[in-house]
């Protein structure tokens, strides 16, 4: 055998990297695993040994039956879907459009707007909760999904603009100029040339935007706590009582709530892999 010190070193390094990443993955996934595992166990089994896998004895779908049996679960689920998807759509659309305008055109107030939006990344929107609530009350939007959608768009835009600007800046200048020579309008350039090229970035932004919205408890609790406008995270809370908590139902509904995000993530992550502008120039 020929010894290759370089290779050996690399293997060691790779092992280290993998060890660190695996540890992180385990730590990150452990709570989720516990939720999913316990969702399929009877109440007694959950308390007896929370870490055990469901066995023939302890296996139970009681939680799911309870959750799905209640008519409003579908409603909460639907509310969450509507709010997340509509917010996501507008964050991506407006984010990309704003990023394009800020990077491509020179106009008065360009820098001011860019700074303002960058500040939106640093200052958490929750600081403005009281004003937002006042605003929504005056607009008569309390207990509507519109209120949530509006807030989430505002919450998602800054980071979206920031990330997408970076990517739009990387689209070669000549591509836009070639399109202008082809008499393509500025709107068409944006929608038919720029958007397809920054699709991987859009997917990244979509993932980053979607998850906090889906998981948010704060704004649904404050702006839309009404029976008909509760989102899934808020809906789950009704199983958590002051004295008794229906753990089966809580864990089952959380398990169910993971599914749509997972599906969306899989869809977006397929876009992430694709190259950005390969073949555009040179």
């Amino acid at each position: 055998m020929i010894s290759l010190p370089g290779l050996k070193h690399n293997t060691g390094k790779t092992l280290m990297t993998h060890a660190v990443l695996l540890t992180y993955t385990v730590i990150a996934l452990f709570p989720i695993l516990v939720i999913i595992v316990n969702a399929f166990k009877s109440r007694k089994a959950i308390f007896k040994d929370p870490l055990a896998l469901p066995s023939l004895d302890s296996f139970s779908l009681a939680g799911f039956e309870q959750v799905l049996g209640r008519a409003d679960f579908g409603l909460y689920f639907g509310n969450s879907m509507i709010v997340t998807l509509i917010s996501l759509f507008f964050v991506l659309l407006f984010g990309a459009m704003a990023a394009w305008a800020l990077t491509e055109y020179k106009f008065r107030g360009n820098l001011f707007l860019a700074v303002l939006i960058a500040m939106g990344i640093m200052i958490p929107i929750r600081l403005g909760t009281v004003s937002i609530l006042n605003l929504m009350a005056s607009l008569d939007l309390v207990n509507t999904l519109t209120a949530l959608v509006l807030v989430y768009i505002a919450q998602g835009l800054p980071l979206a603009v920031f990330i997408l600007s970076e990517f739009i800046r990387q689209v070669p200048k000549e591509l836009k100029e070639a399109a202008r020579c082809d008499n393509v309008s500025e709107y068409k350039i944006f929608f038919t040339i720029i958007l397809p090229l920054i699709r991987p970035a859009m997917a990244t932004v979509a993932v980053f935007t979607m998850i906090p919205i889906w998981n948010d408890l704060w704004f649904p609790l404050i702006l839309a706590p009404g029976e008909s406008t509760q989102t899934i995270t808020l809906g789950v809370q009704q199983f958590i009582g002051q004295y008794v908590t229906d753990w089966n139902a809580v864990l089952s509904s959380l398990t169910l709530a993971i599914v749509p995000v997972l599906v969306l993530y899989v869809i977006f992550s397929r876009q992430l892999i694709r190259g950005l502008t390969s073949g555009a120039v040179k």
Binding site: P172, E174, L175, A178, C181, P196, G279, A280, K282
Partner: peptide, 13 residues
């Protein structure tokens, strides 16, 4: 006019 760019600037998609 029609312009041919140094980098070709073909629409990659």
């Amino acid at each position: 006019i029609a312009m041919v760019f140094q980098s070709y600037a073909l629409y990659p998609h």
